[in-house]
Amino acid sequence: MLVVIGTLVVIISVLGGYMLSHGHLLALWQPYELLIIAGGAAGAFLIANPMKVVKESFSEMLGLLKGPAYRRQDYVDLLSLLYDIFSLMRKNGLLSLESHIEEPASSEVFSAYPRLMGEHHLIEFITDCLRLIVGGSMNPHELEALLELELETHHQEAEAPASAVMKSADSLPGFGIVAAVLGIVTTMSQLGGDTSKIGEHIAGALVGTFLGILLCYGFGGPLASAMESRAQEDGKAFECVKVAMIANLRGYNPMVSVEFARKSLSGHIRPSFVDLEGHLKGARAGNGG
């Protein structure tokens, strides 16, 4: 929602200020200049990035309209899922997790949280961590180092679309200059003809520079920053899982392990201890104890 509001504020402020200073709005309508700038930047974007990043970039842009992937209730569900897993490990041993790890979709533990089951990367990350614990006989330091490496790779991939959009945004002023130079070339070609067109062509060339700068700093750059912030925010779920897994492997009981994970979350999405405890008690009561 803030993306839409911010976009409207930029448009209204820039065009409104221009019109209030007695500018003519139609003078800014230069479709050929816009074609040069937007088309050039789009082509450079395709040259610079693999198809995977191109697709993810458009997907992430649309995702900004939906808000963050994980909300407070999702983190309550995630912490509850981790608590259930750790309780099962503590009660029945590590080998009791094998069937749940191999087929999480048919697991009564995982399927109790249908919203999380839709997050395939997160569920895969959880099950991979559990496989290492069950079959790897790893100590906490080894697991932490391995998970840090995996999370670093995950964060780099998640932030790749934002980085690609930012680089494309940085190229917009340059393409604005290209459009302006071409406009000047057109102006110079008119010197021997109708001189009344000279001012019109110069204005069009200046609009090209204006559009390149506006698209970069008013839309492209902020959009890339918003995508980067969303990727970092969504990565908190994976950090939460890592902290809980390591705490559990170090011998803490399920509730304390989950509390470690809860503390790793940002304040605005972190469920309170009372809310989480009440949710867990309600879940245990619903399961018959």
Rank of each mutant, 00 (worst) to 15 (best):
V3A: 04
V4P: 02
G6I: 05
L8I: 15
V9K: 07
G16V: 06
G16A: 00
M19R: 10
S21I: 01
L26S: 15
W29Y: 15
W29H: 15
L35C: 07
L35W: 04
G40A: 12
G43W: 10
A44W: 00
F45T: 03
L46Q: 09
I47V: 15
P50R: 08
E56M: 10
E60F: 06
E60D: 14
G67F: 14
G67Q: 14
G67P: 08
P68H: 12
D74H: 11
L82R: 02
D84K: 04
I85S: 01
S87Q: 12
N92E: 13
N92W: 05
G93L: 07
L97V: 07
E98Y: 08
S99A: 14
S106C: 07
S107M: 10
E108W: 11
P114F: 01
I126P: 01
T127A: 10
C129W: 01
L130N: 07
V134H: 04
N139A: 04
P140V: 00
E144F: 06
E150F: 02
E150I: 03
H155C: 05
M166E: 15
P173L: 09
P173C: 13
P173Q: 09
V181Q: 00
L182P: 04
T186A: 12
M188D: 15
L191Q: 02
G192C: 00
I198Y: 08
E200M: 09
L206Q: 14
I213M: 08
L214T: 05
C216P: 01
F219G: 01
P222Q: 15
A226F: 07
M227H: 06
S229A: 14
R230G: 03
R230N: 08
C240I: 04
C240G: 11
I246Y: 02
N248G: 08
L249M: 10
N253H: 14
E259D: 15
L265D: 07
L265A: 08
S266E: 13
I269T: 14
I269A: 09
R270W: 09
P271K: 04
L276C: 12
H279A: 07
A283T: 12
A285Y: 10
G286V: 07
G289Y: 14
